[in-house]
């Protein structure tokens, strides 16, 4: 067997140990990306082979959080793909506004920048009061950062540009305090947000939602897990609810795709048909 094939066996063993010991199932994640993340984990722990980590994975409780942090990819930004937020603002929020209460489920929120972006849009459109943003992820360390709402100030310039391109009506610094090298998000935004642990692989519907934003999470999954996740999202949506995916994700291979129609095909914004028998 070639060394690279032996490494594949090691990956299988590691994934199986993680599942049997800790209940986290990564079997249906994209293999090439998983391999990269596991290699990074191996370097982090300074072990020569992935199997050298198995004893600690099995016996040391504290290893799990490090493993989950290394395997999940909490890379995000505020107003990433600004046009998406601008279309949400112009086409989706006016419809959402008619509901007395608006539930937004943001799946795979990472460190929360996207959730804060949404809160800013809702605030500027005058409906933050009636809005609840549930932002979920499997990475607890990332969730803690999201909860604190404190980000590195070196990203402020990029975020401000994105905010402006997304049709922002004021200045991003109106929504955060920059001091020293951090930017701290306004507590008024935070009041509309709930951050929680939720696993697309294992958990059920999180809430009833008028809008689900699940961007750049499905690309990490195989078709099987993509289907499961989309079914979950579909179940959580009210009739006429909206779904926003990442720019490189689509409903094309999803069995229930006929229940949705595109609001903006390129920006991957879809709407569940009102007669589609939503919740």
């Amino acid at each position: 067997m070639k060394p690279s094939e032996i490494e594949e066996v090691e990956i299988d063993l590691f994934v199986e140990a993680l599942r049997l010991r800790h209940g986290y199932d990564f079997r249906h994640y994209g293999r090439a990306s998983l391999r990269r993340r596991l290699l990074a984990l191996q370097r982090l722990f300074g072990v020569a082979h992935l199997v050298d980590l198995l004893p600690r994975l099995l016996r040391e409780e504290s290893v799990l959080s490090k493993v989950l942090s290394a395997l999940s990819v909490p890379v995000t930004e505020m107003f990433r793909d600004p046009e998406v937020f601008s279309v949400l603002r112009q086409e989706v929020v006016p419809v959402l506004r008619s509901f007395p209460r608006i539930n937004i489920w943001q799946v795979g929120c990472a460190t929360g920048e996207e959730a804060y972006s949404l809160a800013i849009v809702m605030a500027e459109e005058g409906c933050l009061q009636q809005c609840q943003i549930y932002a979920t992820d499997i990475n607890d360390a990332a969730l803690a950062t999201a909860e604190a709402g404190i980000f590195h100030a070196r990203r402020l310039a990029l975020y401000s540009d994105n905010y402006r391109l997304a049709g922002g009506k004021a200045k991003l610094t109106d929504y955060c305090r920059a001091h020293l090298d951090v930017m701290e998000m306004d507590v008024a935004l935070r009041r509309a947000m709930v951050f929680a642990h939720h696993n697309l692989v294992a958990d059920g519907v999180f809430c009833e939602a008028h809008l689900v934003i699940c961007r750049n999470v499905l690309i990490y999954f195989d078709r099987h897990l993509q289907d499961r996740s989309l079914a979950l999202v579909r179940q959580s949506l009210v009739r006429g609810g909206y779904l926003c995916l990442g720019l490189q994700e689509s409903l094309d291979a999803y069995a229930g795709k006929e229940e949705f129609y595109p609001v903006d095909r390129l920006l991957r914004i879809f709407r569940l048909r009102a007669d589609g028998g939503g919740r």
């Binding site: 994209g30 090439a32 990819v73 890379v75 690309i219």
Partner: peptide, 10 residues
């Protein structure tokens, strides 16, 4: 299987 994967890793 010679398919493409896209990621937004660092």
């Amino acid at each position: 299987d010679r398919s493409c994967s896209l990621t937004v890793d660092e």
